[in-house]
Simulated scan of single mutants.
Amino acid sequence: MRGISAVLGGLMLVAFSAGASAPPIDYEKVGMVGVQRVMGQWVRYIVLRGDSACVTVQIFNAANMEGLVRQKEICSLGEMHFHRDFAFVDVWRVDFEPNRLSLEIEFIRLRGSGHEVRPCSIEIGNGSIGDLECSLEYGSVYY
Rank of each mutant, 00 (worst) to 15 (best):
D85N: 15
P23W: 06
K29R: 08
L68V: 11
S128N: 10
M65Q: 13
S76E: 14
R49A: 11
F60K: 01
I108Y: 10
G139T: 08
D51A: 03
F82E: 11
P119D: 12
V38N: 11
I25V: 15
D26G: 06
S17C: 06
R118M: 10
L77M: 03
R2Y: 09
V117A: 08
M12I: 01
K29Y: 10
G3C: 06
F60L: 06
I25Q: 14
D90Y: 11
F88E: 14
M12E: 15
L11N: 06
V91C: 11
P24L: 09
T56W: 12
V30H: 04
L110H: 12
Q58W: 03
C120E: 12
Y27Q: 05
G9N: 05
G31V: 00
W42T: 04
R93V: 08
S21D: 15
V57M: 10
G112Y: 02
S5I: 06
K29M: 11
M65H: 12
S121Y: 15
P23Y: 05
C54F: 05
S21I: 00
A53N: 07
K72H: 12
S17V: 02
V14L: 14
V55Q: 10
S121F: 14
S5G: 03
M80W: 13
W42S: 03
H81C: 03
P119A: 05
E73A: 06
M65G: 13
S5T: 08
G125Q: 02
P24T: 02
V43C: 01
M1D: 13
G125W: 01
F86V: 04
G3P: 13
V43A: 00
C134Q: 01
S17P: 14
V7E: 15
R111M: 08
M39K: 07
Y138G: 03
V30Y: 06
L48Y: 11
S140C: 07
R49Y: 10
V57S: 12
R100V: 02
V30C: 04
E123M: 04
M39F: 06
C134Y: 02
